[in-house]
Amino acid sequence: MRSDLTAGGAESPSWLLRLAAWGGLVFLHFPILIILLYAFNTEEAAFSFPPKGFTLHWFSVAFGREDVLEAIGLSLKIACLATVIAMVLGTLAAAALYRRSFFGKESLTLMMVLPIALPGIITGLALLNGFKQLGIEPGVLTIVIGHATFCVVIVYNNVVARFRRTSYSLIEASMDLGADGWQTFRYIILPNLSSALLAGGMLAFALSFDELIVTTFTAGHEKPLPLWLLNQLTRPRDVPVTNVVAMLVMLVTMVPVLLAYLLSRGGDSVAGSGK
């Protein structure tokens, strides 16, 4: 066994392990490849496999559709707003909680995790109910509030990890050298946080853009992209357009994650773990 260990500490795996590992990775990516494939399918109505031909036709059809464009615009708007709110609240919470311990700190962290720890249907139903009690009509505002609520913890996790890795003596050193709280925030804290903050924001954006369950409850008459997609699934006649939109949604949710990973590489590896 000792001879199996190379200098880098990596073991040489048996073919069975290698097969299982790569098999798992293929399993994870196969459906995604199928989506990519079907978006270029010439066929109009069926799910039949293999596809009969290759076309870009459905892209132009999809982008000509008013409802598709509206859904995309709406989802982008919601994701941007929710991300901004989540970034502000998550950073404030991280700044408050990372260092000092005080009574009730644990319950505060739990409270932030709850919206994604509890099944989405509970969060959604609770929010719907809460809005009703306050007499707020479901719409863009309520969707944004809902999304921001479960995105906070994503930003918080990224930022608090960076705070913890940043030695507190940096802040003391800055003050020692004559900088007040504002200057220290501007010149020391913000530059050190920025990549973690950006990574957290990207993940929050991806999460919000794709969120379906809470959105179902808080959307009212609005139709953001995931809801539009869900609706399409019960409507087989639009299959080609659905395929194209599905591919786009997938890309929009995957690219920010890739960027977030690149941003936090070399820093902490927390970005993205624990969606």
Partner: peptide, 8 residues
């Protein structure tokens, strides 16, 4: 500072 606290 003991850990120098240089701004990275």
């Amino acid at each position: 500072f003991q850990d120098y606290a240089l701004f990275p």
